[in-house]
Design a protein around this nucleic acid. Structure first.
Lengths: 149, 149
DNA sequence: TGATTGGTGGGAAATAGTGGGAAAAAATAG
DNA sequence: CTATTTTTTCCCACTATTTCCCACCAATCA
């Protein structure tokens, strides 16, 4: 289970640190990097990626508009990325541009995968979703049993 | 049952004391630290956390807006934090920043989990919610039987 | 008052993270 | 096709941060 929120800066060579606590959770040093849903990048451990991409393929058809949307945005841009000996990953330019990565980045552990955000973009995201978050939390609070009885 | 309101100061290394009475209630010396909903941090015993995060993960999906809101704010920032031999926990920087922790902090026992507040922030919170607290109390008063007969 | 528990500070070792040089690979020009 | 430049990769050295540990103070209790 990968979690944690970290801030690192992209160096001049386009490399980004992956926090050691996350590295420790990942088998091997190769991961799959792709576009995420909200102007962020997603990084999956390879086995996680296999099951997710298979899942997406199964549940959608080539002849559906929506399926192609997802495939083109999530599946197609995916590429392998290696973590170097000092724990950094280099982020390909097209993906860097997509997520507007400049210097300061946020690395977010989402349990089964990792998200990379441009810091400013992330802050704006948090602000602009404050209200809907509170609603969602309130709603969720009613649905799940927070305290396993 | 963890309760109590304590004031401790963060030292220069970012460590915060966990009151011994709370420590006594906790199995092991590892806990989960994450963002809370109102500019405070939440600390859960690991088993509490497992059930909460599993619950959230189950009832939500990667491709749902609301799920991502909750995951990014509550699940993602979570990190394991160990209590050292003298009963302190070091608070990761991003979480310290989120809760505006400077020096003086308030540690609140909330029965099944613990909250950490910046003292000033907490005082302001109490003042600014005075009215809605009274309303809530009134409302609750109608619902429950305080003195179980 | 001496012993035990709760809390504070800080040194030193270990680990994590940063920058950048140099080799290798890839791209571009002649 | 070769020479030159640019980009990428690999690796090492340095710095910062975290962790571990111990010594000390303060309060409580016998």
């Amino acid at each position: 289970m990968i979690t944690g929120e970290y801030r690192y800066s992209l160096d001049e060579k386009g490399r980004l640190m992956i926090p050691s606590k996350m590295r420790a959770e990942i088998a091997g040093n190769v991961m799959i990097l792709t576009r995420g849903v909200d102007r962020c990048l997603w990084i999956f451990p390879t086995d996680e990626w296999k099951s997710i991409s298979a899942n997406i393929l199964e549940s959608t058809s080539l002849f559906q508009e929506k399926a192609r949307l997802i495939q083109r945005r999530i599946i197609a841009p995916a590429q392998e990325a290696e973590i170097d000996k000092s724990g950094r990953m280099s982020i390909p330019q097209t993906l860097r541009e997509y997520a507007h990565l400049k210097k300061e980045c946020i690395v977010l552990g989402m349990l089964r995968y990792v998200e990379i955000w441009d810091e400013e973009t992330y802050m704006r995201y948090l602000e602009s979703t404050e209200d809907s978050f509170k609603e969602a939390a309130e709603e969720l609070g009613g649905k799940i049993n927070w305290w396993h009885s």
